[in-house]
């Protein structure tokens, strides 16, 4: 089990945190509280599945927060225009995939560094959205939008099922489908991958497209929780997602990591904010703790890389 050491140690961290909460603040495990925490984490999990593919291939995408906002507003506008929910979902996913394809083209096609490319698209999309919406919320959505028109309880269930479905498909895809293995291969050794008949540029492009599409899904799963769509939504999402992926044991140098680790990473980070509240600690520490966890996680990777 040496291979899954990281997954196990993060699980241990999460268990310890939950144990402390169980003793100090059992209210954390109240049904409604738990559901709220999990539904808030669901979009992060979905985006993290896509980010895992991108980081596995040794790239990064920090524009997903802006993609998320664009997809959310697009979904809201489509719903407002009276499109049926399945079409709204489809539209958001297609839009996300297109945004991802643009990043993928710049990174895989033009061989530009992904960090700067996505930094540029990050600001461009965000400002474009601000320009077109001028901060205005998308309001008066169709009745079928919030909680899918099912009411909060069943709506939450649908969100959780959706996120879990994406996650499980991702697990199966990475473990059991030929293409899934390509992402590991390209990130592990690009040249060896080429010799094994894999096209690294195509795989990299694919990772960005899938990430974009999943950001579209995440945007819808998030948007349906509210009565209207805030165009500023998704600010800082990239940090949450990258943090969860890195903490979950996906190596930033590519080629290593599992979605199970990412799941634990997402849960761990999702618990921090409510845990701060329940432990009566100032909630403003969330971001700082998140940053410290990222640095600790990559530092652990650095030590390991040096010793091997």
């Amino acid at each position: 089990m040496k291979r899954y050491r990281r997954e196990l140690s993060v699980t241990a961290c999460l268990s310890a945190l939950l144990l402390v909460l169980a003793v100090v603040a059992p209210a954390f495990f109240g049904r409604q509280q738990l559901l709220t925490t999990l539904t808030a984490a669901a979009p992060v999990l979905v985006a993290a599945c896509g980010m895992t593919l991108v980081i596995l291939t040794r790239q990064i995408d920090i524009s997903i927060g802006s993609q998320f906002a664009l997809c959310s507003v697009a979904a809201g506008l489509m719903a407002k225009a009276g499109l049926p929910m399945p079409l709204v979902v489809l539209g958001a996913v297609a839009g996300g995939a297109a945004l991802g394809a643009f990043n993928g083209w710049l990174v895989a096609g033009l061989e530009l560094p992904s960090i700067v490319v996505t930094l540029a698209t990050f600001v461009t999309w965000r400002e474009t959205l601000r320009w077109s919406r001028e901060g205005e919320f998308v309001k008066d959505l169709a009745d079928g939008f919030q909680w899918w028109g099912l009411g909060q309880g069943r709506g939450q269930a649908v969100i959780l099922m959706g996120a879990l479905g994406v996650f499980l498909i991702g697990v199966i895809f990475l473990k059991k489908v030929g293409a899934g293995r390509f992402f590991y291969a390209v990130g592990s050794d690009r040249e060896a991958a080429r010799l094994a008949g894999i096209r690294p540029a195509a795989v990299t492009f694919g990772a960005f497209v899938i990430l974009g599409a999943l950001v579209g899904v995440a945007a819808v799963l998030n948007a349906v929780r509210f009565a209207d769509v805030d165009p500023k939504t998704g600010t800082g999402l990239e940090m949450q997602v990258i943090a969860a992926v890195v903490v979950g044991g996906v190596a930033i140098s590519g080629g290593r990591g599992t979605l199970w680790g990412v799941l634990v990473g997402v849960l761990l980070l999702a618990c921090i904010a409510p845990a701060l509240v329940f432990l009566k600690l100032p909630p403003q520490w969330e971001k700082a703790i998140q940053g410290a966890i990222i640095l600790l996680a990559v530092a652990a990777d650095g030590e390991k890389g040096k010793s091997s």
């Binding site: 403003q284 700082a288 940053g291 990222i294 890389g305």
Partner: peptide, 29 residues
């Protein structure tokens, strides 16, 4: 972190970006 642990500057400063902003928020509550 960059020179001793030989970590890529990109990810190190992405992490410290979050840490520094978080500390600022924590200090001002």
């Amino acid at each position: 972190l960059i020179t001793r642990l030989r970590l890529p500057p990109l990810i190190v400063t992405l992490g410290s970006l979050s840490l520094f902003r978080g500390l600022a928020e924590a200090i001002t509550r």
